[in-house]
Design a protein around this nucleic acid. Structure first.
Length: 462
RNA sequence: GCUCUGGUGGUGUAGUCCGGCCAAUCAUAUCACCCUCUCACGGUGAUGACCGGGGUUCGAAUCCCCGCCGGAGCACCA
């Protein structure tokens, strides 16, 4: 099996499907997995030098390690060698038609005059392309397929063209004659003994185009599965590397890990485990139909992974402070309701508390401050009523989270919908970055960093 | 225009090749109830689908035909 990413930028959620499914199959069938960077276009889909490592890192985040990593841009001599062989076999010819001219001929099912030139002439012209002696557009190398094939997509396709823009990788910066995907990928799949290919339906005709090559070389084409695109609701931002890049450059997003971005870096920063993404992707299967991935599938898989281990904590967002009269000095809610052995958090009251504005009961009504007890809203304060839990069980007093009014920790919660300023219980500043906690009645969040006087957390999901 | 390819509940998926065990699986979602000092976790229950129309057959999600709707390719992108 192989992953064949184009390293033109960090990965978005859609890219995760390839390693998730292929990696899972690799494990399931005890296979071998190659990561091959298809970086053969220094111009239109120009590789981003940082993306190579970023992609390997993303694969690792999703839970997989390639058995081997190669870059197509290291393998140009191999492609040239096979191109020459193909020319000698009568399977390719150099063509100097313009793209428009050839397209017209092709659509009419007519060959261009260059199709019948001799192999030696094509060899010479191809050598000139490789040597950088020809201008871009002057010549291309075409594979001779069947110019009258009913499917116009398969007729005499281009295998090599000349590009003057140097490749961003130092090691490949001298090459000017570059293979296109259909040629490069076909050669590499055979040479690396790939037995199974899984990729998008946009490459459906590719398998047929490459079939001609395999026939010339008398090779056997791998098993191939094509799947449809995935769409993900819940994001305003389109899921494409170039459009995300554009939004970042325009300042509409803070970066690749902005919580509003549909990128792997963003989910990771929000505390989503890579395995949850993998699980959701694998569940989509490999249908050729387009699929809608609901983000809730990822959340559900993630919740399974984090709920048992996440400490509970209090956070109030838009809040209001009230003096408390007659309460105990500290509240003692459990660290985790399913793990009483983990103990309790000791939260000082300090004479006044802060609760979410929405939770403020009408005057005269009661509310249960979790871990502390029941209070009644008098004219402008909370009067402590007691700790008899029956009022919650039998009289339906609402239970809410709270923080001390004078001793809370300022917290910024970043969510896909926007940022919330709020106050967290004291002690939240002791959690190291990367820790995931559950803010009760709010949702899970990953501690991102601890500033001098403020904690920054990223909202995971409810 | 030419050529591929696909349509099962809100979403995903099993079943389609080799017609009956499918009054259609599982997950998620939504709702209700139970549990609970969280709207988390756990438990119970409910909701909800074979694109349409013909045909073959004792019998069709499954085979055939005709429609309808979708996706992809026809690049000197990957």
């Amino acid at each position: 099996m192989r992953l064949a990413p184009n390293p033109n930028g960090p990965w978005h959620l859609g890219n995760a499907r390839m390693p998730a499914v292929i990696g899972t199959y690799k494990h399931r069938y005890d296979g071998w997995m190659l990561c091959r960077f298809d970086d053969t276009d220094p111009e239109t889909k120009r590789p981003d030098p940082e993306a190579y490592d970023a992609i390997l890192d993303a694969i690792s985040y999703l839970g997989f390690e390639p058995d081997e990593v190669i870059r197509a841009s290291d393998r140009l001599p191999t492609y040239y060698e096979h191109a020459r062989e193909l020319i000698d076999l009568g399977g390719a010819y150099t063509c100097s038609c313009s793209a428009e001219r050839f397209s017209e001929l092709k659509n009419a099912g007519k060959a261009c005059p260059h199709r019948e030139k001799s192999a030696s002439e094509s060899r010479a012209e191809f050598d000139a392309m490789v040597a950088g002696e020809t201008d871009p557009g002057e010549f291309v190398l075409r594979v001779r397929t069947d110019i009258t094939h009913p499917n116009p997509a398969l007729r005499d396709w281009v295998a090599f063209r000349v590009i003057d823009t140097p490749h961003p990788r130092e090691a490949a910066s001298e090459y000017r004659c570059w293979p296109l995907l259909d040629f490069q990928s076909a050669i590499d799949d055979h040479l690396t003994s790939i037995t199974h290919i899984i990729r998008g339906i946009d490459l459906q005709d590719s398998a047929k185009r490459q079939g001609f090559l395999y026939d010339y070389f008398d090779w056997e084409y791998p098993e191939v599965i094509h799947w449809g695109k995935i769409r993900i609701e819940a994001y305003d931002v389109p899921m494409s590397t170039s459009s995300i890049k554009g939004l970042i450059e325009a300042g509409d997003l803070d970066g690749w890990d902005d919580p509003r971005a549909p990128t792997l870096a963003s989910l990771r920063r929000r505390g989503i485990r890579g395995g949850a993404i993998t699980e959701a992707m694998v569940a989509l299967g490999t249908s050729t139909n387009d699929a809608d991935l609901s983000i809730s599938a990822i959340y559900a898989a993630n919740r399974e992974r984090i709920d048992e281990a996440a400490d509970r904590a209090f956070l109030v967002r838009d809040s209001i402070a009230k003096t408390v009269i007659g309460s105990p000095e500290t509240g003692e809610p459990p660290v985790h309701p399913n793990h009483t052995e983990w103990g309790v958090r000791e939260i000082p009251v300090g004479g006044a508390v802060r609760i979410e504005r929405e939770d403020l009961p009408p005057n005269g009504e009661r509310v249960w401050l979790k871990g502390l007890g029941c209070v009644r809203h008098t004219r402008d304060a909370f009067e402590f009523v007691g700790t008899d839990i029956d009022v919650v069980r039998e009289e339906e007093v609402p239970v809410v989270q709270w923080v001390p009014a004078d001793d809370a920790r300022e917290l910024l919660l970043r969510t896909p919908e926007g940022d919330h300023e709020g106050w967290a219980e004291p002690g939240i500043e002791d959690y190291p970055p990367d820790e995931v906690v559950q803010f009760e009645r709010v949702g899970f969040a990953r501690i991102d960093r601890q500033d001098e006087d403020r904690t920054v957390a990223y909202f995971t999901h409810s």
